[in-house]
């Protein structure tokens, strides 16, 4: 333990943290899993999904955005928090149009895997049946906004890693959508399948063409073990 390191408490366990680390990254390094969806270790945090919402020194806050500080006491795993997580996941299912049985991402999908881990069998909230656009114009990448959870991973990756800003949001509230940097379609942009932005989507919205179903369903990441079992593989994104 270097001079810079300090301890925080997470669900009664001592976790070592470094200055500048967020709660979630300290926990990841220590092998303590806090549910998350919008967080990605290679990207700046954004605090969209609220699945990582914990009690931090007695107050609700998102573990992916909160910097760790010496002596912090974090509660991440209790019935109230997990119930709230189920409600938020439920909201994501009814907000979009998710048909897992036909979705290419099934088994590799973080949303689906979180629902399994937290024990959701069927949504109980009201389906919104939104109209969402697809974009198949790009030779290598397919965009199906029906499953987009507006986590901004692709936006952050494209802007901060690829230096392209191919993606952004449009609208606000329930009308918010993923927007593409062109007047009409993805193929008009400089987007490439090797971009970071093409590899970080947690759901089936950004799909690389001609790779579909290469790994048969049943043998995919979260078919083998629930999400969070192996924290390294927590964000699968990369569709190899």
């Amino acid at each position: 333990m270097s001079d810079q390191d300090f301890l925080i408490t997470v669900d009664g366990m001592k976790v070592r943290a470094k200055r500048g680390q967020t709660i979630i990254s300290a926990c990841d390094a220590a092998g303590v899993y806090i549910p998350r969806l919008c967080h990605h270790p290679d990207l700046k945090p954004a605090g969209h999904c609220r699945l990582c919402s914990c009690y931090i020194d007695g107050r609700r806050a998102s573990a992916c955005t909160m910097p760790a500080a010496p002596g912090m006491v974090v509660v991440s795993n209790n019935e109230e928090l997990n119930n709230d997580r189920r409600v938020v996941l439920d909201m994501l299912f009814v907000e979009g149009n998710h048909f897992c049985p036909t979705c290419e991402k099934s088994g590799d999908c973080e949303l689906q895997a979180l629902a399994y881990r937290l024990g959701i069998t069927a949504p109980s909230l009201t389906y919104q049946w939104p109209k969402r656009e697809i974009d198949a114009s790009h030779p290598d990448v397919f965009i199906d906004r029906n499953t987009c959870v507006l986590c901004s991973r692709c936006i952050r990756a494209s802007r901060d890693v690829d230096g392209k800003s191919i993606f952004g949001f449009s609208g606000r509230g329930l009308g918010m959508r993923l927007n593409i940097d062109s007047e009409t379609k993805l193929s008009d942009t400089s987007f490439a399948a090797i971009d970071k932005a093409a590899k970080v989507c947690p759901v089936g919205c950004i799909v690389i063409k001609r790779t579909g179903y290469r790994t048969p369903i049943g043998r995919r990441h979260f078919d083998k073990a629930p999400i969070g079992t192996d924290i390294e593989a927590c964000e699968v994104g990369d569709p190899e």
């Binding site: 938020v88 909201m91 994501l92 507006l150 949001f169 509230g173 329930l174």
Partner: peptide, 17 residues
Amino acid sequence: ADESCGWCVPCRVGTTL
């Protein structure tokens, strides 16, 4: 629901629900 900025899930979806 009209004024939710949409950034986070519970408010974006929850206010409409």
